[in-house]
């Protein structure tokens, strides 16, 4: 994990460890968390244009699988605090309860 701060912009590269990838529930929690802060939030992945981290449509277009790295960038009021909260969302386990057999 690397952390760089330049003025009002904070950036963090974070690996997706969830076997299901960065799927809809974490995305929803991410958007909800991002919207609590005034700062801008963008999320990028490898060769794709960064997307708006406050938009479900943006995050849905990422397709971030396990092992891939996403880059979260926050700019403006509360940028550092927002980044910390968003990193926690991405690192949280969403599949801790194993599915019962179908």
């Amino acid at each position: 994990m690397t952390d760089a701060m330049t003025g009002e912009t904070c950036r963090l590269s974070i690996a997706i460890t969830n076997p299901q990838g960065f799927h809809m529930r974490p995305m929803q929690a991410f958007v909800e968390t991002a919207c609590r802060f005034a700062c801008e939030v963008s999320v990028g992945i490898a060769d794709k244009q960064p997307v708006n981290g406050k938009s479900m449509w943006g995050l849905l277009s990422l397709g971030a699988e396990q092992g891939m790295k996403i880059i979260i960038e926050t700019t403006g009021d509360g940028a550092a605090e927002a980044l910390k909260a968003l990193a926690e969302v991405v690192e949280r386990a969403y599949d801790e309860v194993p599915e019962p057999p179908a």
Binding site: G21, F22, M24, G63
Partner: peptide, 20 residues
């Protein structure tokens, strides 16, 4: 299918491409 998370993520990308 079970154990095929990348297909699901690719499909979500496709849905986003259209419905956004």
């Amino acid at each position: 299918p079970q154990e095929r998370p990348s297909e699901h993520l690719r499909a979500l990308e496709g849905v986003s491409r259209c419905l956004r």
